[in-house]
Structures are given as C-alpha cells and as structure tokens.
Write a protein that binds this DNA or RNA. Structure first.
Lengths: 240, 240
DNA sequence: TGTATTTTTGTTGTCGACAAAAAATATCCA
DNA sequence: TGGATATTTTTTGTCGACAACAAAAATACA
C-alpha cells in the first residue's frame, strides 16, 4: 500500500498561498490515514512528501507534528515517522471511552440543541439514508461519523466534542479495516436508532437520549468486536 | 509580566543534544504557561525564544505547534502566537468535563489499580500532606494535580487520562490565578477527601470511589467558582 | 565461516537566510 | 489639519543546505 509516482498535489504553475501549505498537507494526510490509503504502521518519508506537495520539508514537518499531537502518527526520534498502528491490545479502553462519549454528547445535545442544530443533524441523517440505499459502505461510515460529530457539536462542550471526534475517527479506521461490504441488516438498524436518537434530541428528552445512545454504542462496539473476532479466526487457520 | 533579559536556558559552552531542543522549549513553555509566569493572552516572540534557548527558530516553532495542539497557545496566522486566554464564558463546559473525568478515572482506578499504583498514589498524597503543613500553596496545587493524574494512570485508559490531565492543567491555571493564599480550612478538607478516595481505590470499591470523586469534584468546582465570583465583585466595584 | 569493526548510505534535526504579510510610520494632497 | 496613500519596519512562513544520527553494507580478523 505504498504511494509511488503520485501526481503532485498542487497545480504545477501555481504558487501556493503562504501559510496554506501545512494545512493542505495536514488535511490530505489525515484523510489518507483514516481512509487506510496509508496503512497503519507504514513509514512516512518527509522528502517524498515534500516532492509530492511541492513544498520544502519545514511545513511538512509542522504538519507531522500536528498529526502526532492527535495520535494519528507516531514519531520515532532520529529515525522516522509512521502512521499510528492500531492498538489492538487496548481496544477495550477505546470502547469504554467511545461508549461514554456517545452517551455524554447525546445527552448534552438533547439539553442544549438549537433548532439550527436539528436542521444540520437531520441533513446528515438524510445523507446516511441515501448512503444505505446506495449500499455505499464508505459513504455510510463517513456520514455516520459526521452525524455523531454534529450531535456532539450541538451538545456544546468542546472538550467532549474534541475527544469524541478523535474516537470516531479511530473507529472509522477500524470499520474500514474490516468492512468492505455490509450485510443488509445492520445499516438499517443503525438508521432506525439514529431516528430514535434524533427524536429524543428534538424533544429534549435527556434520559431517552441517554438510553438510545447507550444502546447504539453497544451495537457498534459489538459490531467491531465481531469483525475482529471473525478476522482472528481466519488468521488462526493459516498454515504455518 | 514580560520576560526580559532572562538568562539563556542552556549552559553557554554546551551543545544541546540533537532532538532535545524542541522538548526543552516545550517543557519550559508549558510550565511557564501553567505557572502564569506567562500571562494568558500575552504574545510569544519566536526570535526572543530562539535567543533565550540558544537555538534557531525551526525547533521553537515545532514546540509552539505542539503547544497549540494542546490548546495551551493560540496561533494567529501571519501575525503571532499568544498564550491561550482563559475562556471564562465557557467555564461551565470545563467544569462539566472536569467533574465527569474525576468520576470516571477514579472509578477505573478502583477497578484496575495494581499495588504498585497504590504506592505511587500514596507517595503523592504524602507530598500533599507536607505541602499543606508547610502552607505552600503552589506546591499544593501542583501535587494535587499529580495525585489525580496518577489515579487516572492507574485507571488504565489513555483517552480519559489524556483529557483529564489537560483539564487538570487548565484548572491549575485557574487556581493560580485566584489563589495566592488559602484559608486554612479548604486544604484540610481536600486532604480528608483524598484519604477517603485512596481507601476506596485500595478496597476496589467502585461505587464508593464514584461517590467521593463526585463530592470532590463538586468541592473543587465550588471553590473555583467562588474565587471567580469574588474576583468579579472586586472588578464590579472599580470606579469608572 | 562467523563475529567485531569500520565505512557507507539514507534520513532526520537544525541552521541562517530570504520572501511574504501585516502593522507601524511617514508622506502627500485637499 | 485630516484623511488617504505610499513607505518602512517587524515578524512570520518557507527554503535549501548541512551536520548528526542510526541502520545497512562492507571490511577485517580470528
């Protein structure tokens, strides 16, 4: 899964605006990491990146420092930087935090949402519906993430929202890893649960929001765990 | 509260080891920000820093990017970087997250602590006792932070631990801002509560840990709020 | 042949210099 | 004098070059 001979990410004649370089590198790399375009654990070469983006290594490094701060990338001093590996031994920490953030952000959204928030969340839920109908797995994963991130924003607590987005992103990477195709049933369950969640938020029913968030989190954790278990069974059968 | 004519932070004859520059700048600035040695909102000059530390601007900038990632510093593009202002309008977000993290980390510590964890936490509690006896306010604030951070570590969830440390640091800044001296009563209440908390963790009583964490959080939030209210009253009496 | 030591190679961390951007200052003109 | 415009100053963002470091390759040696 290496990136070779890739077209440069800037129009050849164009001079990039001062200060936009780091942002562009940061955004592109973040997407590619969460996409699994860049495999977990794979090395990142500063020189190649600087050629690819047509800028010097200095802004590339600043982007990598930012990514390292978010845990998307790990820097091995004096050696190199790698895409953050997926930390399987500590997945339970991840599930615990993810579940709590589902609950907390959904509760807060029910308490604090404005009508403008409702419109934005509804739009994302509609997008999710379309993705399910189109059976577009990647779009489903992405829109699902944005749906919950928007709910967190409506909850109006930047500490929770920030942690939750980080967890949702990591979850996106896990889902990508195991899901090239869904069975038909699961997405429709999520669709229904989202609908109930949105109703609870709209009615500002905090306890109902908490209940459905909890159930939704359990559903998703189960899904990921099942995927991983299935995968491990396959590995266990490899001839050695 | 400006820093002028400060002695350089490296021994004049010494060459700093490659790769240690950013870390040194990062650590020093972080301390000074949380200390309030650097006032919230005050500008940070890259050139002055590079002279002070005896290194070029490149590693200085990387340190600033890291600090910005943690919200300790705010970068105004093409202009300058300032020490993160204290976000008074949104303090309730902070209190909400802080309280939840107190509870969650203490619960987890009760569930997961090893005996080695207990030793480390006990050592910090002893340090706190000494600070109270010495009436050393700054030491009390610092050790208190480390006490709870260590409990979070024992809880063994890096997502919670990381967010909690960030919140504790921000709290440290708030306490520093308002506390040059304590009244005698409060620190001893904290001391007792810490004792109860440690006992619950030792006995692995999750529900008791939760109860005392909740009470402790409320206590601290009340303290900070009272300090701010008092301060605002003073400001309200200024003649205009 | 296998192990210790040196050399080479590749990549990072740091530097000093320069160009772009914004603010501060000076200049012009009614 | 006052307000708009040009100029200077200050500080950032970026660059290309180089030295330090670690791994890999080559060499020496038993």
């Amino acid at each position: 899964m290496s990136v070779e001979e890739q077209a440069p990410d800037h129009l050849p004649g164009t001079k990039r605006k001062r200060g936009k370089g780091v942002g562009a590198v940061y955004d592109t790399l973040k997407h590619e990491i969460l996409d699994l375009t860049l495999a977990p654990g794979s090395p990142i070469d500063e020189v190649k990146l600087s050629e690819r983006f047509g800028i010097s290594r200095t802004p590339i490094r600043e982007a990598l420092v930012k990514l390292a701060g978010e845990g998307l990338v790990v820097t091995l001093p004096n050696r190199f930087t790698i895409v953050a590996p997926i930390d399987f031994p500590n997945l339970s920490q991840f599930f615990d935090a993810l579940s709590l953030m589902y609950r907390v952000t959904t509760r807060l959204a029910a308490a604090n949402r404005t009508s403008a928030d409702l419109v934005r969340i509804r739009a994302l839920q509609d997008g999710y519906t379309r993705a399910v109908e189109a059976m577009d797995v990647h779009e489903m994963i992405e829109v699902n993430r944005n749906f919950h991130a928007e709910i967190a924003r409506a909850g109006n607590n930047r500490y929770y929202a920030e942690l939750f987005e980080r967890l949702l992103d990591e979850g996106r990477r896990l889902l990508r890893l195991y899901y090239s195709s869904y069975n038909d049933k699961l997405p429709r369950i999520y669709l229904q649960e989202h609908e109930v969640m949105l109703a609870a938020i709209e009615q500002q029913d905090v306890e109902a929001a908490d209940r459905i968030a909890r159930a939704h989190a359990e559903q998703i954790v189960r899904q990921i765990q099942a995927s991983i278990a299935a995968d491990h069974r396959i590995n266990a059968n490899i001839s050695l």
